[in-house]
Structure formats: structure tokens, C-alpha cells
């Protein structure tokens, strides 16, 4: 049986000066390679902080760690964070890493789902643990009603034809399907960014209080993490190996082919493209886009403004080398 819940957790976040516990919002994988690299290369130590990285389990997410005081910093989807703020969790964004949406729908070519409208009435797999807001908002915009099937983490139900469409991350499940023997030309893909929902994803979040009290530690963390990402971008083989090593340690199925793909795509997501922002900066337009998704999703007005939500700790972020 899968006993993912029984994971020994580290001690509670100390709250001590110079020590931070960081919880990424998913299991170990190349999506977080920049942080692993920063730690492995000693960038955090060089910045004068010690960092512990803990991962969520199938049933405990990163937000829970934060609420339970087990983590000081967490990474989250922008929409998930807005959702948490909406639910009166007093958190702020201190750095927006991802600048684009990687969410997409995938259907098998032979399933007959050729357009987003063909999904009407179909079974669509979606993560049970969150990230639902943007896909739901997308289908709502196109007035397509589907039967959502919550899925924990694998693509097996989709492969076996148990669902017609699967919501996937370009950097993750999409490639897992490919690495299960489905050729790319056997799939229809629908990038949500092509449907007006290019909402950025991974960002770094802390309690507003932490932001106030521990600004220098947080700045050190963000700067060292960005350095980690830059290093990962320039040493992709190394970053992939490091990630696989960490995954093996956690007994999570892993292989270089998939993690290399993931690293490449996550780095692409961090590309700023034409936006007038610096790395780790949240674009006000993206904020508004995410707010409108959340407001539509919960049918409630979102009160905090951009300045309250986005409180960067790195004032002038140096130019990123990430391609």
C-alpha cells in the first residue's frame, strides 16, 4: 500500500535568526532544482543562512506546514496563494519565480477530443490537491461543463482510458505520458496560456509577520535561491543528477530523462519573455489576471491589493541569465 502519509517530519521551524525551513509545494522533483542546487552548492551558507527543505506528502500540503509553523517559507501557485489569502491566511509573495502557465489539457487523438468544446460532458482528470482554479476558470470561460475526476499524482488512469482528458503540467505529467509509451503526435494538447490564462505559477510565500521581522534572512534566501536557479540553468546535467539523487533518497520513482525534461521546461517557465518585470518580480497584470480567476472561482471579491500581496525582499533584482 502507499503509506505516503507516514513521513518523518523535521523539527518545527525554529524561528531562529539565520535559519529557515523551506517547503516546496510538491514532492521532490526538478521543479525545485534551483533550491536543491543552492543548498548543495552552499549558496545559502554563503548568504549567511541555514536552510532545511521539507516536502509535502500526499495529504499534507505546503500551506499546512506554514500554518502549523513547520515551515518559514513555502512555494505555492499564485492562484493557490490568493485562495489562501482569501481564506484569511496572512501571507505575502516575496518572489515570483514562474512567469508563465504550464498547465494544459491532454487528450488522446483517437478519443475524438479535438477542441476544448469537445470536452463537454467528458471525464477530465485534475489534481486532487489543488491547482484547480485556472483549469476550472478556463473551461468556465468557454462554457464547457465536464465531469472532474480528482487524481492524486499518476497518469495511469488516463493511460488506461479511465478518463478522456487529463489536466497536466507541461513539465511533468505531459512528459510522463510520453515516457509511458504514448508518442507526442498521438496526443492533442491544449495549453491554457493559449486560451487567455497565462497565469504565472510558482512563487515564494511567507507570513506577513515573517516578512516584517526577518527581511534580511528572506532576502538572503531569495538571492541565494535565484543564484541556485542560475547555476542549475548553466549546469543542467548536474542539477538533474542532484534532483534524481534526492528523489531516490525519498524512494520516489525517478529517472534522468524525465527530470531533465522537467528542469528544461521549468526554466522556460521562468523566462520573462516580453513582460516588463525582473526575475522574481510579480507583474501587476499577472496579479490582476490571477485575481479575476480566483474571484470567478469563488464568486467573491478579492480585497488585498497588489502592493499588499507582493512585497519583494529583493529590491533590485539583478538580471537573470536564465535563457
Amino acid at each position: 500500500m502507499v503509506w505516503l502519509l507516514v513521513v518523518s517530519l523535521p523539527a518545527e521551524a525554529s524561528g531562529k535568526e539565520g535559519h529557515l525551513v523551506f517547503a516546496p509545494h510538491w514532492l521532490p522533483q526538478a521543479q525545485f532544482a534551483g533550491y536543491y542546487v543552492a543548498q548543495d552548492q552552499g549558496f545559502y551558507e554563503e548568504a549567511g543562512i541555514t536552510v532545511d527543505i521539507i516536502h509535502p506528502t500526499a495529504s499534507v500540503n505546503a500551506m499546512q506546514y506554514l500554518l502549523d509553523g513547520k515551515a518559514d517559507i513555502i512555494s505555492m501557485f499564485l492562484t493557490s496563494a490568493l485562495d489562501a489569502v482569501q481564506k484569511e491566511a496572512n501571507i505575502v509573495n516575496i518572489g515570483q519565480l514562474s512567469q508563465h502557465s504550464a498547465i494544459m489539457f491532454v487528450s488522446m487523438k483517437d478519443s475524438g477530443v479535438e477542441s476544448i468544446y469537445d470536452m463537454e460532458g467528458k471525464k477530465v482528470g485534475i489534481w486532487k490537491s489543488g491547482f484547480r482554479e485556472v483549469p476550472v476558470a478556463t473551461l468556465e470561460k468557454y462554457e464547457v461543463e465536464v465531469e472532474w475526476v480528482p487524481i492524486l499524482s499518476t497518469v495511469n488512469l488516463f493511460l488506461l482510458g479511465g478518463i478522456d482528458v487529463m489536466t497536466v503540467m507541461w513539465y511533468n505529467e505531459y512528459n510522463q505520458i510520453y515516457l509511458s509509451g504514448i508518442d507526442r503526435d498521438e496526443m492533442n494538447t491544449f495549453f491554457l496560456s493559449d486560451y487567455g490564462f497565462d497565469v504565472p505559477e510558482d512563487g515564494l510565500y511567507v507570513f506577513e509577520e515573517t516578512r516584517k521581522n526577518r527581511e534580511s534572512d528572506l532576502r538572503a534566501f531569495v538571492e541565494a535561491s535565484l543564484r541556485g536557479w542560475e547555476y542549475a540553468a548553466q549546469n543542467r546535467e548536474y542539477a538533474t543528477r542532484l534532483t534524481v539523487q534526492i528523489m531516490r533518497g525519498a524512494n520516489i520513482p525517478s529517472n534522468h530523462a524525465h527530470q531533465r525534461w522537467m528542469l528544461n521546461k521549468v526554466l522556460e517557465m521562468q523566462c520573462i519573455s516580453i513582460k516588463e518585470v525582473k526575475p522574481s518580480e510579480l507583474h501587476p497584470g499577472d496579479f490582476e489576471k490571477a485575481v479575476s480567476v480566483i474571484e470567478r472561482f469563488y464568486d467573491r471579491e478579492f480585497t488585498p491589493g497588489y502592493r499588499e500581496f507582493f512585497q519583494p525582499v529583493v529590491p533590485a533584482v539583478k538580471k537573470s541569465n536564465i535563457p
Binding site: 500500500m1 505516503l4 502519509l5 475526476v149 488506461l160 479511465g162 520513482p253
Partner: peptide, 20 residues
């Protein structure tokens, strides 16, 4: 979930059983 939805027996992919 898979046998429940497919209504047929299912052999899972190999996995690591942590805990037990």
C-alpha cells in the same frame, strides 16, 4: 481508484511501500 473506475482488476505500477 483505477479498478473502481475501470470496473476491472488492475495490476499497479511498481512502487515503494514506505511505512509498513
Amino acid at each position: 481508484q483505477i479498478p473502481a473506475i475501470l470496473k476491472e482488476p488492475y495490476w499497479s505500477e511498481p512502487y515503494y511501500d514506505e511505512g509498513a
